[in-house]
Amino acid sequence: MTSAESGATHGALGAHAILMVDDEPQACKWFARLYGDEFVVLTAGGVAEALALLAQRSHEIAVLLTDYAMPQRDGVALLSEARQLYPHISRLLVSAYADKDVAMSAVNRGHVEKILEKPLDEALTRQALREALMSAQERARERALLERRAATLRETLGFLAHEVTTPLATVRGYLSAMRDRHRDNPESDSGFAQIEQQHPGDVLQMIEAAQRRAEYAQSLVSTFVQTARDAYHPDSAPSLRASELVQAVHDEYPFDHDEARWLSSDLGADFVLPGRRDLLYLVLCTLVKNATLALRASPPERPGVYILLGQEAPAPGLAVQPVIHVRDNGPGIAPEVLSRLTFEPTTTRADSGGSGMGLLFCRRVMTSLGGAVVVRSEVGNGATVSLYFPSAQ
């Protein structure tokens, strides 16, 4: 198998190949033949050829091994440019004894991670290549992890901005209403403001509702701040029980009027949740909000949102998993909408500002934890959204 064929065979593996650079064709052939039994080896006959190959296939190359003494541009120049353009690649330099001072200078400047002396010792070279390959792959994993964390933060921030807009708009509406009802009384010197009520107690209700929404918006912002912190300290997460998460929604969600009475829960089958409170709190609040809005749009005689903790299989033949069910006794979901809910932005409330991103966000959070979201509904018989978590076993 040629080096090009080896690269094509393993291309799906990400960075995995060794690029050996030497201006002596025989040295390249010897290296590929000797080490090709263990590594995917690519070769180049000089700096220009190596840079051209890197530009095309840097996603495959994990280790760059180059001779120092080459015409026009030497190996240190190649490694220095590769360090700037392709920082994920491990860099090794081959030098003769006479070039040792130059090679050590390259090590000290960070252009090269290790030097190998000519003639190459096979055992030492193999070990150096293994270590360099492992180092490159570890850097690739860390880079991918950082990219995933950054993507999660961007997505959470976008969803958070959408979620915060609604309670803040409500607060502004209540404040505007109270401003419009404010009445000056120039004859009064009591120091009390006068706000006209349309119904007994409605001003107090507006103040309390505005306060609940402001507190909820603050909790969402705190959630994002905690998410941002945890993104770079994921191992510091304390254990969180599902019952604690449900109780937080009971205590903190800004229900309107007497809608808090709609929510009930059964926490008997408690379990420890993976991850931290922040994103899971946002997921559960989103599901409660969706259920409440569905009930508000078409209220039954006795509206109800029910949160149930359990242990069950998501489908026949699958293992038993911890689950949180969020059920409502609202109008249910039409089959054509239900089939799209967890895979694309879909909403039944577009006329009132619904975007359909809520359930999609919940699904992405659960997928990142190794869990799943299942939605079940029949028209006229409410809906149940189930959050399945990976089993502790």
Score class of each variant (00 low, 15 high):
residue 317 G to T: 01
residue 330 G to D: 02
residue 343 F to I: 06
residue 315 A to P: 03
residue 341 L to I: 12
residue 362 C to D: 10
residue 333 I to M: 06
residue 343 F to T: 05
residue 308 L to D: 08
residue 361 F to L: 07
residue 357 M to G: 04
residue 310 G to L: 04
residue 336 E to T: 03
residue 310 G to D: 11
residue 338 L to N: 00
residue 313 A to H: 03
residue 317 G to Q: 03
residue 357 M to R: 14
residue 323 V to A: 12
residue 323 V to R: 11
residue 308 L to Y: 04
residue 331 P to H: 08
residue 336 E to M: 01
residue 339 S to M: 09
residue 340 R to T: 13
residue 366 M to I: 05
residue 310 G to S: 09
residue 354 G to C: 07
residue 359 L to R: 10
residue 363 R to D: 12
residue 358 G to D: 08
residue 330 G to K: 01
residue 368 S to D: 15
residue 350 A to S: 13
residue 328 D to G: 04
residue 368 S to Y: 11
residue 337 V to N: 00
residue 358 G to R: 06
residue 339 S to A: 13
residue 337 V to S: 03
residue 354 G to A: 13
residue 305 V to D: 01
residue 364 R to Q: 08
residue 317 G to Y: 02
residue 342 T to S: 13
residue 323 V to Q: 01
residue 322 P to N: 06
residue 307 I to D: 04
residue 330 G to Q: 03
residue 333 I to G: 00
residue 307 I to W: 14
residue 307 I to Q: 03
residue 339 S to V: 13
residue 328 D to P: 02
residue 312 E to P: 13
residue 332 G to K: 05
residue 350 A to M: 13
residue 337 V to L: 12
residue 327 R to M: 09
residue 340 R to E: 15
residue 311 Q to K: 14
residue 321 Q to Y: 12
residue 348 T to G: 10
residue 340 R to W: 12
residue 334 A to Q: 15
residue 315 A to N: 05
residue 337 V to P: 00
residue 363 R to V: 10
residue 340 R to K: 10
residue 355 S to A: 07
residue 325 H to Q: 10
residue 321 Q to E: 15
residue 329 N to D: 15
residue 359 L to H: 00
residue 328 D to I: 02
residue 365 V to E: 14
residue 314 P to Q: 05
residue 308 L to G: 09
residue 310 G to M: 07
residue 327 R to C: 10
residue 306 Y to M: 08
residue 313 A to M: 09
residue 351 D to H: 12
residue 313 A to V: 03
residue 332 G to Y: 01
residue 326 V to Y: 09
residue 306 Y to C: 09
residue 324 I to W: 14
residue 355 S to Q: 06
residue 329 N to F: 00
residue 337 V to R: 04
residue 355 S to T: 11
residue 351 D to P: 01
residue 361 F to Y: 15
residue 319 A to V: 10
residue 357 M to K: 10
residue 367 T to A: 15
residue 341 L to Q: 07
residue 362 C to S: 07
residue 364 R to A: 02
residue 317 G to N: 02
residue 315 A to E: 13
residue 309 L to D: 06
residue 309 L to K: 11
residue 352 S to D: 11
residue 366 M to R: 02
residue 345 P to C: 10
residue 352 S to E: 06
residue 360 L to E: 10
residue 308 L to K: 11
residue 320 V to M: 14
residue 330 G to I: 00
residue 364 R to D: 08
residue 369 L to T: 07
residue 356 G to F: 02
residue 368 S to E: 15
residue 338 L to K: 00
residue 341 L to Y: 05
residue 347 T to H: 11
residue 313 A to S: 12
residue 355 S to I: 01
residue 357 M to Y: 04
residue 348 T to Q: 14
residue 340 R to C: 11
residue 363 R to S: 11
residue 366 M to V: 04
residue 327 R to S: 09
residue 351 D to C: 02
residue 323 V to H: 01
residue 310 G to K: 03
residue 324 I to C: 12
residue 320 V to T: 15
residue 356 G to M: 11
residue 312 E to L: 14
